[in-house]
Design a protein around this nucleic acid. Structure first.
Lengths: 200, 200
DNA sequence: TATTGAAATTGACCATGGTCAATATAAAAT
DNA sequence: ATTTTATATTGACCATGGTCAATTTCAATA
């Protein structure tokens, strides 16, 4: 249901989301089963799919919510004065996004766009992320030759790459923090970074 | 079977991959069904999973193969002298990666790493991609203040972001080519890019 | 060539996401 | 109150990926 009209539908939807959150708290995101959710909520399976297009749509909502909470934190924070400080600010969100492989996959799948044409919750948080970062990056210590929006988009893209490599057997040895530092420094402060062999 | 010893096992594996390729040719990647593959190959379903951990592992192999073909092309090409030329070189691969949403998702899922600890075919092509691009980016027209390897990794990350946005309802209006140009120019030629408002 | 142990294959079976015609409930109209 | 219409819910059913004990085939060896 896109627009629940009756009160009971709203209540059912809330029950389902609540049940899902509890199931996740108990067993993690990847282990979530629709069957478990509907049982906890005390409704039939069909009801679930009357409220959410599919399981992924529920994950989109729940994870999107979670990311929004992190963005609320960031929003209430003064701009970082350095790449290091920027990484510090982003760390909680980064850790959430990588704390479970399944979560990272869901986020990636929804980051660009929802499966359909409409923009889902996670995609919206990616927009919001840009809007939070852009003003930060308009700050003195970062490069001024390109639009802060573009800078923010770059931080997003490079950050995701860092997280992806974090799951990778080949690249696991380098701590994510260092990798982010390399990437972000090169992206945000091109003039000040010195040439150094970074591997091999 | 990681290491098929008997000849028939090798033949069976080949039959399966061949059948899968035919099924894909007929209906596309996203519509591939294991049932269809084993029927075409004339084997039981269990045999499929004796040869591949899961359906995703098969897709990893087949899509990895395809990407490798594009990399072969790139390998036989002289370094691009400009961002525009770079984008031109990458276009066929970019188009393949985005020609089906499902394909892009599979690639993303395997790009960082295989689900397990071992490095899968697609992950290997991402390594190879870096090795092809790095020498290109060591060329005169691109920035020299950072390691070409890092430059290549950045092109990869930013390129993927462009593709992800290509699927996104919000960003669809801007052609991928232009977006890549913005990203790559800022990344590869920081000194020469002029500040310009790029949106809003 | 008969025996035997490992490799390969089989297919019935399971787990889980998702569908839909039928039914029940709420709210509006008479 | 009764009827009517739209909304919400139900649960049997389906589609598809994946498992595994049993069976067959291969090839090495006596």
């Amino acid at each position: 249901m896109k627009t629940p009209i009756q009160k009971r539908a709203i209540a059912t939807r809330a029950k389902l989301i609540d049940a899902a959150n509890k199931a996740i708290a108990a067993k993690g995101y990847g282990a979530l089963r629709v069957e478990d959710v509907v049982q906890r909520a005390g409704v039939a399976k069909g009801t679930f799919f009357a409220h959410f297009r599919d399981k992924d749509a529920l994950m989109d909502i729940i994870i999107g919510n979670e990311i929004d909470r992190f963005l609320d934190q960031l929003d209430a924070t003064p701009p970082p004065g350095s790449v290091e400080a920027l990484i510090d600010r982003l760390t909680p969100l980064t850790q959430f996004m990588t704390h479970e492989r399944y979560v990272f996959d869901v986020i990636l799948r929804h980051s660009g766009a929802a499966a359909s044409e409409e923009v889902g919750p996670i995609a919206k948080t990616f927009e919001r992320y840009i809007m939070v970062l852009a003003p930060w990056l308009a700050t003195a210590s970062f490069r001024k030759d390109v639009d802060p929006w573009l800078l923010a988009e770059g931080v997003q893209a490079l950050g995701i790459q860092c997280m992806a490599l974090h799951f990778c057997a080949i690249h696991k040895e380098e701590p994510m923090r260092e990798r982010m530092n390399r990437y972000f420094s090169a992206w945000l402060c091109p003039s000040t970074c010195t040439k150094e062999k970074t591997r091999h």
